[in-house]
Amino acid sequence: MPVDIDIAKVARLARIAITEEEAAEYGAQLGDILEHAARVQALPTDGVPPTAHPLPIANALRDDVIEPTLDREEVLAQAPERDGDFFKLPPFLEDS
């Protein structure tokens, strides 16, 4: 049984504008994929800890030392839009 997904909500969370047709298509495909992926639920995992990372090491820290920064012109050269020394954006919708 394919998984039913509120694809419009997922797309909003992922900040991707999708059309209704795309939503229908992605929804169906994701349903199929998730049906397959849901197989993971068949495996008994009581008492099994999750693995987030394959490398069992800890503590990769850096000393509190200042390192060279990027050249502002090189950074802003990639900006889709700039205004003086800033990245320029359309207005925000929401309060921070």
Partner: peptide, 20 residues
Amino acid sequence: VRYGLRRAGSTVEEMMASSR
């Protein structure tokens, strides 16, 4: 916002969603 493709949008949220 900082690099790559940008599509127009009347708000930053719209800009992000259509760029993506």
